[in-house]
Write a protein that binds this DNA or RNA. Structure first.
Length: 570
RNA sequence: CGGGGUAUAAUUCAGUUUGGUAGAAUGCUUGCUUUGGGAGCAAGAUGCCGUAGGUUCAAAUCCUAUUGCCCCGACCA
């Protein structure tokens, strides 16, 4: 490809709409343009990257036995009504009617579609397992689209669905996909983690989110550097932290005037924060009071509290509800509460000795609280309800966990028979017995993967592509394309590289050298080959590696081979 | 849906307070010079001042409504 004929409009000024580095660079480098909130055109340069990522995905899907197909974007309401999700999906679904008034939606996902396609056609265990996928636009009318391709309303997604005859088969399919995802994101040159996720209401199986590590990401994760454990902050399991065993002293009430925060209590009583017990009061939708207790330096994880109490939603409790239960805001204690409130105590709290806790009276705290002795075991729920913190021990290997932020680029999920059951999709097993398919679904956000790659690989000058997904692997720059010797020389190297199968761009534009260099850095081609009067004179070429900034001078005779070798490590 | 911001040239932004002929830089076109890190000189083209009402002799500017976009939050997974 010749740059003089290639449509790659770069911008000098940073568009005002972009906040995120990757978003700014995608606009400046001419990869994408916005048409409406959360809707983007992919320009030739951006689409080249998308196609390379899709190709990697296809190769890895096919390697696991996946078969590509293509389903309609527009889906009839009936199948969604059948699964019960037409009503549930809400405003996030883009809906429309045809001229006859029939209802349709633009597919936010394709479980219903693929299941209705399979049922009736696949009716024997002999046809299983089956893995079908497509790469297609998805539509989700997000409340707040943001960060360019990170959260958009129309986006390219690879979605694969697996069908198995039993749970063992389903788990094998899951493992295959997990492995494929690992290979895909590794090939894309991303630093990522497979993060343990909870699949909530769907239940029954496993779920992992593949998360690219980036400070700008929307999800927060805890991970271990010593083993491969990683989990989202809300899902990270935590082990008990045992305090040193002490002799239990008698429980005692002390006055703590105006000390309604842990910080104040700690300072007033001059005790370390690890010796205090903190209370957080919630109410659920039914008005039930839920009291959560964690160590003073810990934070309550609302999701875990939710799960421990089977509540649907939590909000901060009204003072009146606290008083009714016999408590006192700011001085809450599990000791001496009336029945009715759910009391959830973190595991670590139970291991504390001679601690400080509220006394359910104004300006009063207990000292020498020993939960094992003083809490009424019958009335409390003891479980892990704290939020993970940097330095917490890894549940797998015990080393310190680290916290980071990340971008979720893919997810693998087992569905069991949720959809096959809802849509009555069955087959006959070895015994002639009718069974529901055991399914799994596996998605990758292609645009988000591109954005994440940029987010993770850039500098002040622009993008730094990994060779595998770079729009071009090599760019050849004759510093003055008006000089025939330079252009001829460049064209010969261009042809030779092309013959070797290298994806190469010849920047034959008659721009000044500075403009071309700036564009090269901005767009981020892994290797730049410069042709100038100096290199012509010595019959050589100058090579610049974008990522390292290294500069090499190769003889004309073997430069093509050397460039080819260099590429292998990029 | 709540809070905040914003809308003027292809892009980034002045101009709005105090109403009076639409501005700059970059980009674009043409010519000459220049050619290893976003060149110089000269000549150009480019605007429903988001939209709709209102006030006024006169509105980019004041008033009302409305819409788009950006950020924070809630919601959703």
């Amino acid at each position: 490809m010749k740059a003089s004929e290639f449509y790659a409009p770069t911008l000098r000024a940073v568009p005002a709409e972009a906040e995120l580095i990757s978003h700014k660079l995608m606009l400046r480098a001419g990869l994408i343009r916005k048409s409406a909130g959360g809707m983007y055109s992919y320009l030739p340069l951006g689409w080249r990257v998308m196609k390379k990522i899709m190709q990697i995905i296809r190769e890895e899907m096919d390697a696991k036995g996946g078969q590509e197909l293509m389903m309609p974007i527009t889906q009839p309401a009936e199948i969604w009504q059948e699964s019960g999700r037409w009503a549930v999906y809400g405003d996030e679904m883009m809906r429309m009617k045809d001229r006859h008034g029939r209802e349709f939606c633009l597919g936010p996902t394709h479980e219903e579609m693929i299941t209705s396609l399979i049922r009736g056609e696949v009716n024997s265990y002999k046809q299983l397992p089956l893995m079908l996928y497509q790469i297609q636009n998805k539509y989700r009318d997000e409340i707040r689209p943001r960060f360019g391709l990170m959260r958009s309303r129309e986006f390219v997604m690879k979605d694969l669905y697996s069908f198995d005859k039993d749970l063992d088969g389903m788990n094998i399919s899951y493992e295959k996909m997990y492995d494929a995802y690992d290979k895909i994101f590794t090939r894309c040159g991303l630093k990522f983690r497979a993060v343990e996720a909870d699949n909530g209401a769907i239940g029954g199986g496993h779920s992992h989110e593949f998360t690219v590590l980036a400070p700008s990401g929307e999800s927060s994760i805890a991970y271990c550097e010593s083993c491969d454990y990683a989990a989202s902050d809300e899902k990270a399991e935590l082990k008990v932290i045992c305090a040193e065993v002490e002799e239990m002293k008698p429980l005692e009430k002390v006055l703590t005037p105006n000390c309604h925060t842990i910080e104040m209590v700690k300072n007033y009583l001059k005790v370390p924060i690890e010796k205090t017990i903190k209370a957080v009061a919630f109410q659920d939708d039914d008005g039930r009071l839920i009291l959560a207790f964690v160590r003073g330096d810990h934070e309550v994880n609302e999701i875990k509290v939710l799960n421990a109490t089977n509540a649907l939603h939590l909000h901060m409790a009204e003072d009146s509800a606290i008083n009714e239960a016999g408590g006192c805001a700011g001085f809450m204690s599990p000791i001496g509460l009336k029945d009715g409130a759910a009391i959830v105590v973190d595991l670590t709290v139970m291991e504390m000795f001679n601690a400080v806790a509220g006394a359910n009276e104004v300006d009063t705290h207990f000292i020498n609280v020993n939960p094992k002795r003083d809490f009424d075991a019958e009335k409390i729920i003891v479980t892990d309800i704290r939020m993970v913190q940097e330095g917490d021990p890894c549940p797998h290997c015990g080393k310190s966990l680290k916290m980071t932020r990340g971008i979720e680029v893919g997810q693998v999920f087992t569905l069991g028979n949720k959809y096959s059951k809802a849509l009555n999709a069955t087959f006959l097993d070895e015994n002639g017995k009718e069974k529901f398919f055991e399914m799994g679904c596996y998605g990758i956000g292609v645009g988000r993967t591109m954005a994440a790659a940029i987010e993770q690989n850039n500098d002040a000058d622009g993008i730094i592509w990994t060779r595998a997904i770079a729009p071009f692997e090599v760019v050849i720059v004759p510093v003055n394309a008006k000089v025939p010797e330079q252009l001829d020389y460049a064209e010969k190297i261009y042809d030779e590289l092309k013959n070797l199968g290298v994806d190469v761009l010849l920047d034959d534009r008659t721009e000044r050298a500075g403009v071309k260099f700036k564009d090269c850095d901005l767009i981020g081609y892994p290797i730049r080959v410069t042709i100038s009067p100096k290199t012509l004179e010595s019959n050589s070429v100058e090579i610049k590696v974008r990522r390292s900034g290294e500069i090499f001078h190769f003889d004309r005779a073997d430069c093509v081979t050397k460039i080819f070798e260099l590429l292998k490590n990029l």
